[in-house]
Amino acid sequence: MMNGDRITLAHGSGGKLSAALVKEVFAPAFSNGALNELHDGARVRMPGAQLAFSTDSYVVKPLFFAGGDIGRLAVCGTVNDLAMCGADPAYLSAGFIIEEGFPVADLARIVSSMGAAAAEAGVAIVTGDTKVVEKGAVDGLYINTAGIGAVLPGTDVSPRRIRPGQDILLSGTLGDHAVAVMAGRYGLELPPAVVTDCAPLNGLVKEILTAAPTVAVLRDPTRGGLATALNELALQAGVGMMIEEGTIPVRREVAAVCDLLGFDSLYLANEGKFLVIVEPNYTEIVLSVLHRHPYGREAAVIGRVTAAPAGQVGLRTIVGGVRLLDMLVGDQLPRIC
């Protein structure tokens, strides 16, 4: 990135340019041990406690979409970021930036959906802030949430612990959230089966870490999708990965929409799915925990960590060819969360 450059939508896509923005602009200014792990949340020590701390802003358009809304998203997103650090989320903050003229009824609907999501996740929203800006300064309403929770004792969820030979599990189908939001935005008719997968994953994660405390890493493939999440992990751990295309769960209706609009489900955002990387002797245990839980019914083993080529992800296709599965470049769909 150069000084004369300007921010583009692709810098917010979660893909290559987002990574460059973090690396070249934010990280040098803020550098510290907890941040430099570049996890979904930070793991920090306070006297007597190992904590995880995370924040995220939500700018999804439209505010309401099939199966969810910006409020549920704002709670689940931050809860999931904490869960992906192996933490038990406890407290959230919520900040609202609202455009002048925004209907109070819509705000009430969004806030009550946040309350319901918080109750489901077992977290409390304990502090907040509201700013109102003049018409046109934001598009309706944006929400920021931050959250904090204690790291589950006896676990160490970190890309550093990824090793060749470990299995890669995915908790369910890809692309549901992105397709639901996109349909809402462009007024597409969707089959009723296609709704956002937005859900708090902390309960399921806790069950997994209780059954298999040695899980190496958890990661939710949000912006940039599965392909980007896998690439980040491969780069951070300095390992290769081989993914079996035929094992990746995708809803038939979602695949059809993707075919029609030229989207690739491997790059679409998810809000209720996660990857688990674990030693193979724990794979069956983790898989059975996933399959018993409503948010993990369609979970599958989708691939394996390899020693080489370091930092690269390969995809073995349906017909048995192999190709590189690269990170997202550019923006498939801005403002998806």
Partner: peptide
């Protein structure tokens, strides 16, 4: 070629 890794996977 860039996106899909030049065709033949060197794994």
């Amino acid at each position: 070629w860039y996106k899909y890794g030049s065709g033949r996977w060197q794994g």
